[in-house]
Design a protein around this nucleic acid. Structure first.
Length: 608
RNA sequence: GCGCCCGUAGCUCAGCUGGAUAGAGCGUCUGCCUCCGGAGCAGAAGGUCACAGGUUCGAAUCCUGUCGGGCGUACCA
């Protein structure tokens, strides 16, 4: 059940967590009866259709207490019914459904602001220094929706970890060298006519990306010719034929020239990379994507070789007869992995060993996280295994945040074939839609229409990407696009804006200063208060499990609960004290919505 | 072949540290603007949780097997 907020109640732990007085007392009562020091009580929110606020599941207590579930339930129900916080308690099988008094319910939830929105959530002893790497783009093409998912996840996870109290450093590793980069360079050299972003009016990353596509088109022609000349190659894969084509050979030659510091090639490389990076920075800025430190693979790809040499001497690696260096990871069921080619050059994992050690030296994190697609799971399993084999004491706390890909209805996105949802196009399209909807709504054009449209568009995109589970493949249908209704970013923003509007309207209203929670008690009010109480637990779990979808789902649930309340319980029309108290409830909801949106790096609007 | 992930409503997805009658959104249907923002609310219809066994007082959830889909299994990154 989503929003299952206080599943496990652990009174002995110091973390701030919502406390229900009644649960404390039940725990103490049961502990005393069983002569135990501590009893952990599983308390869930009561199912919606059942009468009650909290459910105590006595099946789970049976083992610890060595009593029959029904017996415990009867005991708990009887105890509850004589407790001042309890309106009524009903025992069904081994479940006890507890209906709190209005006073107790609000006292232990929305009135307890210190526990509702604590500044930090992890205990001091559990604080980590996290290094989170994400984005890691190639500088040969513009970013698409798949990158946007990565960037959004990286920002959100980093932000969630910060929110609960960890120290977090966000890192990007730009993949700015390699054959794929040379492909764009070759195509530009041959077909570019010295064009520039200025001369074409194009964003730099798109300009370079077009040459990457052009390379592929020309390459395919050469492959076709090659296969015609040599029919025995008919079944060969295109990639395997790359070195055998004239274009491919040119790309490899260019890569060697680059590594030899050929001034002409380096100048071209710096020019094109500069354009792409300018384009990336513009895209990052729109989405609020930020990094504390950016590494470039052109600086780091050499690293790792010394570490391999050292490991070779210590027997971690072995040199094969053909000269290649490998590690035996059969014991971990990862096979044998080459770490240096027979010509002495590095492979992917060797570079990552180097950059990981470098990043660790630079920041001395206690935990490292990589936000990288799940198709690279094997790579990270191998990387972590090698680092452990090398004896780095910090290698036990490395995490690959493996997320699923974003597909289109017709299948995978492929930059080379132009079947991608481009990040900038997506941002533009959504912003236009948001602007259109905003204009339809207001007779006068709001001054900050551009900002509103931008915030709404980004909220729609980010929440669409964040609300689904990390591992799920997202099927993105451009026809249906991203919705502004239902389970959406704009829906969450909308409810936040409603509250802001209400606060403006009541700013100079003549309402009493004191709230009186005892006057509330509508089902929608109780449900909303209970939902609010679950925020802290959601944040904590999201941080423990690196799962931003928990926060995203919670915000949608909270917004929905608020929306029901809004329809059922008018604020302004109510009696002054009730109005004052309901306004306080709204303020609490807005604070949590705002905190959650901030935590997911989604903007807020006071009016939309 | 082996490894990992996935299969839940017409569609897109939650739920998976085992608990009561499996939940949202979209779409369909019915109501609701003399009422604080209708980007909304209330309600209806829609499910053998891929299939078969097993463990358990209790299985969508854990275990085994089968079927179907994706990814990986490079001296590519």
């Amino acid at each position: 059940m989503r929003g299952c907020a206080f599943t496990l109640y652990q009174p002995h732990k110091s973390q701030p967590k919502m406390h229900f007085g009644i649960i404390d007392d039940i725990a103490a009562h049961l502990a005393a009866a069983a002569k135990l020091e501590v009893v952990e009580i599983a308390a869930d929110p009561c199912p919606a259709d059942m009468a009650g606020d909290i459910t105590v599941n006595c099946f789970r207590l049976a083992k610890a207490l060595r009593r029959k579930p029904d017996d415990i339930a009867a005991d708990v129900a009887a105890f509850c019914n004589s407790h001042e916080d309890v309106e009524s308690a009903e025992c069904i099988k081994a479940f006890v459904n507890v209906t709190l008094t209005t006073v107790a319910l609000f006292r232990d939830t929305v009135a307890n602001s210190a526990a509702l929105l604590p500044r930090t959530i992890v205990a001091d002893g559990e604080k980590e220094r996290f290094l989170v790497e994400y984005s890691a783009p190639n500088t040969n093409k513009p970013q698409h929706l798949g990158h946007v998912r990565n960037n959004t996840l990286g920002m959100a996870i980093g932000s969630i970890l910060k929110r609960v109290g960890h120290d977090v450093t966000l890192v990007n590793l730009i993949n700015d060298r390699g054959v794929h980069i040379c492909k764009s360079m070759i195509a530009y050299q041959r077909f570019g006519d010295d064009c520039t972003p200025e001369s074409t009016g194009m964003k730099g990353d798109h300009l370079v990306g077009d040459f990457y596509v052009r390379f592929d088109q020309e390459f395919k022609k050469q492959v076709a010719e090659l296969k015609e000349r040599q029919p025995e190659l008919a079944d060969a894969k295109e990639e395997e034929l790359l070195p055998q084509t004239e274009l491919g050979a040119a790309a490899y030659a260019m890569l060697r020239a680059w590594e030899d510091d050929d001034p002409e090639v380096r100048a071209l490389w710096e020019k094109l990379n500069g354009w792409v990076l300018d384009g990336f920075n513009a895209t990052y800025a729109r989405a609020g994507t930020e990094f504390d430190r950016v590494y470039f693979e052109s600086d780091t790809y050499i690293l790792g070789r010394d570490i391999i040499d050292d490991g070779l001497q210590r027997g971690v690696f072995t040199r094969r007869q053909d000269g290649a260096v490998e590690i035996d990871l059969e014991a971990r069921k990862l096979g044998r992995k080459v770490v240096l080619r027979s010509d002495g050059t590095s492979v992917y994992v060797t570079q990552d060993i180097g950059t990981t050690v470098l990043k660790h030296r630079d920041f001395e994190p206690t935990a490292m996280v990589w936000v990288v697609g799940d198709e690279q799971k094997y790579h990270f399993d191998v990387l972590f295994a090698i680092l452990q084999a090398l004896g780095y004491e910090w290698a036990g706390n490395l995490h690959h945040l493996a997320y699923g890909m974003v597909n289109l209805p017709q299948g995978k996105m492929k930059s080379r074939e132009g079947t991608v949802v481009d990040a900038d196009d997506l941002f533009d399209g959504m912003t236009d839609l948001a602007r259109q909807k905003t204009l339809e709504k207001w007779p006068e054009v709001p001054d900050d229409i551009d900002r509103r449209a931008h915030v709404i568009a980004m909220a729609a995109i980010k929440l669409m990407l964040l609300k689904v589970g990390l591992r799920s493949t997202i099927k993105f249908d451009p026809e249906a696009a991203i919705r502004f209704e239902g389970d959406s970013g704009p829906f969450v923003l909308y409810n936040y804006a409603r509250i802001a509007s209400l606060k403006r309207k009541t700013a100079d209203a003549d309402l009493p200063a004191a709230v009186d929670w005892s006057l509330l008690g509508e089902p929608a009010e109780r449900a909303l208060a209970m939902r609010c109480a679950g925020y802290v637990e959601v944040l904590g779990r999201a941080a423990r499990e690196f799962d931003a979808s928990l926060v995203a789902g919670y915000l949608i649930d909270l917004a929905r609960d608020f929306s029901s309340f809004w329809n059922a319980c008018p604020v302004l029309k109510a009696k002054p004290v009730v109005a004052r108290t309901r306004l306080e409830l709204c303020t609490v909801v807005a604070a949590i919505l705002g905190d959650g949106l901030d935590t997911l790096t989604i903007g807020k609007l006071e009016s939309m």
